[in-house]
């Protein structure tokens, strides 16, 4: 066989290997348009019958600085002791106060809706009808220049198939992930991507140089809701739970 033919055969054999080592994300980064997350997504926690590769990975360890860890653990112990007595202690959600960023991304099994336009991604949680807006390709403000609130200020950009969202300006009174405290310096970074056409992962990293020894990361997985799911309104106008003088959540009962 002539030498030229051998060279061609070698090239043909190498092509699949070259293709295999090329990062699919890089290929996507070169494509003209980013993925469209528009749609309604339900919480996907895996469990029996589900595909484990789409379930959210385990969160990273939670390491608070000692001065915050001690009261945090004490509070958890207090909550646990109250639960043993059949009581729930006061908390913002029992008062129907919204969850804010990032907790609103994962409330029980309530779906979230993504509405994506070239300049903005709007995320609506069915629970409490919470709304957050991610402004695309805009610079982030300094933390001290953002009015502290429940949703802060979010900006985002696409890195290949991944929407990277940066959020600052969450006020400390907003309930944190698993009740951990946070300072005004908290920064939330999300990497949102579709791991399959119907599964979306939101990898959430919380950085707080005041409260956390190191950043902690957890992932919320979503599955596209079947059919043309229509979001249900959620206005908290009949909250029968109240907090008594001892700080315990009680339920108002009617007598007729």
């Amino acid at each position: 066989m002539p030498a030229m033919k051998w060279k061609l055969l070698w090239c043909a054999a190498l092509l699949p290997m070259v293709a295999a080592i090329i990062d699919p994300q890089m290929l996507h980064a070169q494509s003209a348009s980013p993925p469209d997350f528009t749609g309604v997504w339900g919480i996907y926690r895996g469990g029996p019958g589900s595909d484990p590769k789409f379930a959210p990975p385990a969160p990273s360890p939670l390491v608070l600085k000692p001065e915050y860890d001690k009261p945090y653990q004490a509070k958890r112990a207090e909550q646990s002791a109250a639960a043993q007595r059949g009581e729930q202690l006061d908390n913002s959600s029992a008062r129907c106060i919204p969850y804010g960023v990032p907790t609103m991304m994962s409330i029980a099994i309530y779906p979230v809706e993504f509405i994506q336009t070239p300049k903005q991604v709007t995320i609506i949680s069915e629970a409490f009808s919470e709304v957050r807006r991610v402004y695309l390709d805009r610079p982030q403000a300094k933390i001290d220049d953002v009015a502290p609130g429940y949703y802060g200020r979010s900006v985002g950009h696409f890195e290949g198939d991944t929407l990277v969202v940066d959020t600052v300006g969450i006020k400390p009174a907003v309930s944190g992930y698993r009740g951990i405290p946070h300072s005004p310096q908290m920064r939330v970074t999300e990497r949102i991507r579709m791991v399959s056409p119907d599964i979306l992962h939101d990898q959430i990293t919380i950085e707080d140089p005041v409260v956390l020894e190191k950043p902690m990361t957890y992932t919320v997985a979503f599955k596209r809701m079947a059919g043309d799911y229509e979001m249900v309104e959620f206005v908290c106008d009949n909250n029968r739970e109240y907090v008594d003088e001892k700080g315990v959540v009680r339920l108002k009962l009617h007598d007729k």
Binding site: G47, E87, Q88, N91, A94, A108, Y110, E241, R250
Partner: peptide
């Protein structure tokens, strides 16, 4: 067992 009924804003503590 592993799965629980769903509440958005308070625990089941007050119920047996």
């Amino acid at each position: 067992g592993a799965a629980s009924p769903v509440l958005a804003h308070h625990s089941f503590t007050m119920f047996d």
